[in-house]
Computed example of a mutant assay.
Amino acid sequence: MTTTTTDRAPSPAAPATVSPTRRPRRRPGAAAPYGFVAPAAVLFVLFLALPILYAVYLSFRKVQVSGLGLGKGSHVEVWAGLDNYRNALSDPDFVGSVLRVLVYGVVLVPTMLGLALLFALLLDARRVRARSFSRVSIFLPYAVPAVISSLLWGFLYLPSVSPIVWVTQKLGWGSPDILNSDWVLFAIANIALWGGVGFNMVVIYTALKAIPSDLYEAARLDGANERQIAWRIKVPIVLPSLILTFIFSMIATLQVFAEPITLKPLTNTIASTWSPLMTVYRDAFVRNDIYSAAALSVVIALATLVLSFGFLRLVQRRAFSQEK
């Protein structure tokens, strides 16, 4: 049996196929974080960023009146350059309000932070009773809106309705007028002090609770008492929190508005330009000069920014060196 073989030509080699580059597949749900951030970003742009840009734009504009100011086209908005800023910085009412608020801050901020630190250290002590009740009681005034607290203290200041004045009269101490020109600054500072100590205390107290207890035990083994532990261990460690609360208090001081504007109808010693923001309010809603008010607002914002970052640059090496 013979077997025949047929010679076949070799088939040409198939061309190599180059597979296309595969793009990395996006994981399902990768865009979810952007969806959560989007509402906050939209609100930030609409109600914060755009109003700020619009205020800056208005600060470089003014209204030019032609003729008697009557008829269509007599009031035209034109470019003002730096005129609004020059007028704002040379306004004696605005300069006086700035100096008044500086004195107000010198009185308020050290007192408020000192009391907040004292209360936080007392609550963090080893032997303290009713810690939870005391913490809530100190913090509770912060939850009261500034307008309500100003009205409350305002009626406590009025001699005709104040129970404090009634007690002083019964004791033969007379009827002090706390809203007179000599004491009105301290009366306003007392309202801010009553509401601000609790917030700063909670910030400092939270920082104290984060300190390891091993440091306290080691200090007690070395013979340190509670006062030495508080001054030499607790205060230096919570110094960054003190700086944070100082910056918050400084910003709130520069923006004081609710307390004096609420007390103003109760006394004649508080002018309509008592604080810088009250001067902005007067220009915008009393004089109907939104361009000058915009310039004043930009000046206050820049001053707040410069003071905050300048203070941080001044103390960052000393205060935050332990975090490196």
Rank of each mutant, 00 (worst) to 15 (best):
V128M: 06
N288C: 03
A31K: 03
N200D: 06
T267P: 13
I290E: 02
L305H: 09
A189D: 08
S59A: 08
E77D: 00
W153S: 08
Y216L: 05
I300N: 09
L99E: 04
G310C: 04
R129Y: 15
Y291D: 12
F60K: 05
A303V: 12
T279I: 08
S90K: 09
A14G: 03
R313E: 07
L263H: 06
L171W: 14
G96C: 06
S149D: 02
F320A: 00
R86D: 04
A32N: 10
R127I: 07
A31Y: 05
I148D: 02
A120R: 04
A271S: 15
A224V: 04
S59K: 02
R131H: 11
L123P: 11
S321E: 05
I178Q: 10
V298T: 13
V109Q: 00
P92A: 11
V298K: 15
M278W: 07
L89H: 09
G114Q: 02
V184D: 00
I188Q: 01
V107Q: 06
P163G: 10
L156C: 03
A9E: 03
V167Y: 05
W274K: 09
G198M: 03
R227S: 14
A293F: 10
A224P: 02
L117C: 07
L50G: 00
G35Y: 02
V306Q: 02
L152D: 06
A55C: 09
A116N: 03
S149G: 12
I148Y: 05
L113S: 03
K324F: 05
L254C: 06
S150K: 04
A303D: 03
T3C: 08
T206N: 12
L221M: 12
V238R: 11
T279E: 14
R126Y: 10
P212T: 10
I237N: 03
V298H: 13
D214T: 09
S249R: 05
S249H: 04
L53D: 08
R86K: 08
I233N: 08
M250E: 07
I52R: 01
I191D: 00
W166M: 08
L58A: 08
